[in-house]
């Protein structure tokens, strides 16, 4: 552990050397790969989840996406890498980046899709009926009633997607991608355990910080009426149940 601390505090490791990117660059790479994947997955899964949850049609898609979670991440990563990378003749990182981005997007879709859909479907039917009775159109019901109520679940889906992607992006260094995973595998190859442990600390810190930031977003984006931060009542119990349901995700 103390060796890892020495490695982490050595200023040489924080500067870009010729051919070896420094810690800030690799942190930036890791963040960029992860956020790009989560963004693409959200663009695909969030509208789809809203649509399926609102119309109640197409639930087999959610079941299928959840089934994908049973696949071993590493196997999926290497299979896609082997299948896709020979077809990519780009410069630089493209042969590593494209297949791993596809896998990361595939991993981020199920939590976002499943939680968005479940969040919208779990809205109390009485609330939905009341909004229709007040003369809201289907679109208004979705965006002004169902989505705000579903938001805690949607955001916890996003949180587990981010964690899963950050963890898997680390493993993706095995097939040659940059990011903090490089320190783990390069350290292993060179028997440099200080570098390895230092990299592990960095990844854990990155995951904790990202999750903390999203927890903050969740706290302030969710309407006080839904989260029950102000006042007491049935909404509070509902929010707790929703939060508990969102936590039932899988580490990566």
């Amino acid at each position: 552990m103390s060796n890892a601390l020495t490695w982490l505090t050595d200023p040489v490791n924080w500067q870009d050397q010729l051919g070896t990117p420094g810690i800030p660059t690799q942190l930036g790479n890791h963040l960029a790969y992860s956020l790009a994947a989560v963004a693409i997955a959200t663009v695909i899964a969030f509208p789809l989840g809203l649509l399926i949850g609102h119309t109640g049609r197409g639930t087999p898609v959610v079941t299928f996406a959840n089934g994908l979670r049973a696949l071993p991440t590493l196997g999926l990563l290497i299979l896609l890498y082997v299948v896709v990378s020979p077809h990519i003749s780009g410069r630089g990182d493209a042969p590593y980046l494209v297949p791993t981005e596809i896998v990361l997007v595939l991993l981020a879709i199920p939590p976002v899709l499943g939680n968005t859909c479940a969040g919208v479907q779990n809205v109390d039917p009485a609330v939905r009926d009341a909004s229709v009775g007040m003369g809201m159109t289907g679109r208004e019901v979705l965006f002004r009633v169902e989505l705000p109520i579903a938001l805690p679940l949607v955001l916890s889906g996003l949180r587990s997607a981010v964690l899963q992607v950050v963890a898997t992006a680390t493993v993706a260094a095995y097939v040659g991608l940059g990011g903090i995973g490089r320190y783990l595998y390069d350290g292993l190859a060179a028997r440099d355990f200080a570098q390895m442990t230092g990299g592990a600390v960095l990844v854990a810190a990155l995951a904790l910080v990202l999750d903390g930031v999203l927890a903050g977003v969740q706290r302030y984006a969710v309407s006080p009426g839904v989260s029950g931060r102000f006042g007491t009542g049935p909404a509070q119990a509902g929010a707790r149940v929703a939060e508990a349901a969102g936590k039932a995700s899988v580490p990566a």
Binding site: M1, N3, A4, L163, V166, A167, T170, V171, G181, L184, L188, F193, M196, T197, G199, A200, V201, V203, A204, A207, L208, D211, K247, P251, A252
Partner: peptide, 24 residues
């Protein structure tokens, strides 16, 4: 438990030897 759950598994595998004193 939420904090522990956040740590990526590979990081935990790699950090274990320096915590437990085991071989990698």
């Amino acid at each position: 438990s939420g904090l522990l759950y956040t740590i990526p598994s590979l990081a935990l595998f790699v950090a274990m030897p320096s915590i437990l004193g085991t071989k990698i």
